[in-house]
Amino acid sequence: MSKRDYYEVLGVARHASDEELKKAYRRCAMKHHPDRNPGNAEAEVAFKECKEAYEVLSDGNKRRAYDQHGHAAFEHGMGGGGGGPGYADMGDIFGDIFGNIFGGGAGGARGPRRGADVGYVMELSLEEAVGGIDRQIEIPTLETCDSCDGSGSADGKVETCETCGGRGQVRFQRGIFSMQQGCPHCGGRGQTISNPCGDCHGQGRVERNKTLQVKIPAGVDTGDRIRLTGEGEAGPPGVPPGDLYVEVRVKEHEIFQRDGDDLHCDVPIRISQAALGDTIRVPTLGGEVELRIPAETQTSKVFRLRDQGVKSVRSRRKGDLYCRAVVETPVNLTAEQRDLLEQFEATFVGDGARKHSPRSSTFIDGVKGFWDRMTS
């Protein structure tokens, strides 16, 4: 049986916000939870389906992949396609569902595994994206407090939390529900501080602007991401920092349009060049090259220059450059030029003129056929 659409499972629109997704997930989980539907196999399947849908749609990267490719995006074990949680996951589920209701602490039952990831959007010119670049960036983030070395304590002393006994989690019993979540007293850390650090106010982290040197490899394109491990926000004491993700956005170019590893551009040519043929010079990202325009070239004719595109950041294969000929109508004519053109135009007389204009002849024949069909 094919899987249901994740948005349908949660009963939300495809443009639903994160908050709408979370509310829909809570309703779904409450309705179908096995403890509320003992022995009901259909409810258990629906509960797992609901959890699976939320795991995918609540993650920005997974949601984008699902929106683009559907369930096929997770056929090979990508997150969210594993068939939903078993009963071993109940603590995490209830920590998420009821955290706001009972003042849940950070990180749920097991506490935070690491600091938060940080995103940064870097705009590049086409030349920078194609050639690669080292760029210095500055990002606001949370870093380990130097004064207390991340402990949050002014004197380095910490005490075991009396509320959770150092476990970082507490359990609630509400009717048929047994819920465990991060301790609201110690924030899931399992420890309390009687003499908090004056610089970080006991948090162990302070806000700072961090300067980093980022190496962008040659060939990147809009949407590519570079991960800098450990350069995200610092976590609580004993927890490693998150990662920094630099997302690339390539600005529009005045000459070239990029399509994967290929480039496209329009090349203007004069009527005489199009009719008689010529060799012209066209720009590429590596400099100018010669392009032969054969006689009788029509506008929109495309010429392919091999290996003049972008070298792929993944396969290292180089794309091609496609030049589209655009025949320009001359402007600002001198009297002599106008006279020559009038003499030239005078040579196109009678039925013989049609052989010189293949596209015009085809168009005229089409118009005649159209009117014949309309009047018959």
Rank of each mutant, 00 (worst) to 15 (best):
V248Q: 02
G223W: 10
P241M: 04
G187K: 02
R205S: 02
G190C: 10
Y245P: 02
E247W: 04
G190W: 03
G286H: 07
M179T: 06
I293P: 00
R227I: 15
E207N: 10
E207M: 09
H201G: 02
D262N: 14
R189A: 12
T299V: 07
G238F: 11
P184K: 08
H264F: 14
V206F: 05
L276N: 12
M179L: 15
K210Y: 08
R292D: 11
T284Y: 06
H185C: 12
H264A: 02
Q191D: 08
D221P: 00
G238W: 11
Q273A: 10
T211R: 14
V246A: 03
T211A: 13
E252V: 12
I226S: 05
E296V: 10
R304W: 00
P217G: 05
Q213P: 00
L228N: 07
E207R: 11
I216Q: 00
L212M: 13
I216Y: 01
T229C: 05
A274E: 03
P217Q: 05
V248C: 11
G202R: 02
Q181H: 14
I280M: 05
C186Y: 09
R205M: 13
E254H: 12
Q257W: 01
G202M: 05
P268S: 09
T284C: 08
I271Q: 13
L291T: 07
P237I: 10
C186M: 12
F256M: 04
R225W: 08
P283M: 05
G260A: 08
D278H: 12
G219W: 00
C197W: 01
G182S: 12
C183F: 08
L263W: 00
Q180G: 04
I255M: 03
A234E: 03
T211N: 06
R270K: 13
T192Y: 03
R249Y: 13
I226H: 03
R270N: 12
E231S: 07
R189E: 13
G219K: 00
E288F: 10
E231H: 11
V289T: 15
S194P: 00
P240G: 05
I193L: 10
L276I: 09
S300Q: 13
L228Q: 12
V214G: 02
I269S: 04
P196A: 10
G238S: 12
D261I: 14
D199C: 06
G242K: 02
E252M: 10
D224M: 09
T192G: 06
D262K: 01
D261C: 04
G230F: 11
L276T: 07
A295M: 12
R249F: 13
R208W: 04
R189S: 15
Q191P: 00
T299I: 06
G198I: 08
I269T: 05
G235A: 07
P240M: 06
D224P: 01
P237A: 15
E254S: 14
G198F: 06
T229Q: 13
G286K: 11
Q180I: 11
T299D: 03
G242F: 03
L263F: 03
